[in-house]
């Protein structure tokens, strides 16, 4: 009579163990799966949301010289800033702040985020000039898009962002340090007056929206 009792106890323990293990496996699988592929492909691209900036019909070129449609930025969060490469002091600070921001980002944020710099000085910032700027600041091709637009396209984009600048002939260029965060579909989810004002806020915004 003793032997079967011991046997049954082991069976029950085994069963419990397997069941628990299975349950844990079942619950953890999504997490484990994510670790294997931390950044699943963005969802299938549906229609652009009504407020998506990517609905703007404006022509840009990348610093490699090819035509670039804003909707190509779709799929990743974008930290967007308007710059010009001969900017005396504001822009280098801005871009360096963005670089520092990128380095400080947790891996899951930085892999889901791109940086887009649009020149407000299209007469000077040719694709070649922007490409030289990319090299000078070592902005990697995977994360950084440098765009040159026709004056009209830049005016349209800046108007949508609420970004002010002057491009009147004979007056020096001037502009604000406004930084904008776009979600994966190009909808503005955050803006702040400058990166330096609150770098954590930029990262938190993306982290919360991931």
């Amino acid at each position: 009579m003793v032997e079967p009792t011991v046997d049954r106890r082991w069976v029950v323990r085994g069963l419990l163990g397997v069941t628990l293990g299975a349950a844990m496996f079942g619950y953890l699988r999504p997490v484990l799966g994510q670790r294997r592929a931390p950044h699943p492909r963005p969802r299938t691209l549906g229609p652009l949301p009504e407020r998506s900036l990517y609905r703007l019909d404006a022509s840009f070129r990348s610093d490699s010289g090819r035509p670039f449609a804003l909707r190509e930025l779709r799929g990743k969060f974008q930290v967007l800033a308007l710059i010009f490469t001969r900017c005396p002091s504001v822009c280098p600070t801005l871009v360096h702040e963005l670089l520092a921001l990128e380095r400080a980002m947790p891996a899951e944020v930085s892999q889901a985020t791109g940086f887009t710099l649009v020149s407000i000085d299209p007469s000077h910032d040719t694709p070649e000039a922007l490409h030289a700027y990319r090299k000078k600041l070592a902005l990697d091709a995977e994360h950084w898009s440098l765009l040159r637009g026709e004056p009209e396209a830049v005016r349209d984009l800046s108007a949508l962002l609420g970004f002010s600048y002057s491009d009147t002939d004979g007056m020096p260029l001037a502009h604000s340090k406004l930084v904008t965060v776009l979600d994966r579909d190009g909808v503005v989810i955050h803006q702040q007056a400058s990166v330096g004002a609150d770098p954590d806020k930029l990262v938190d915004t993306i982290l919360r929206a991931l």
Binding site: V90, A159, G162, S164, Y165, S166, P172, K177
Partner: peptide, 11 residues
């Protein structure tokens, strides 16, 4: 309309 009246680099 979104012309920026300040014309020195640091704004």
């Amino acid at each position: 309309f979104n012309f920026l009246p300040l014309a020195d680099g640091d704004v």
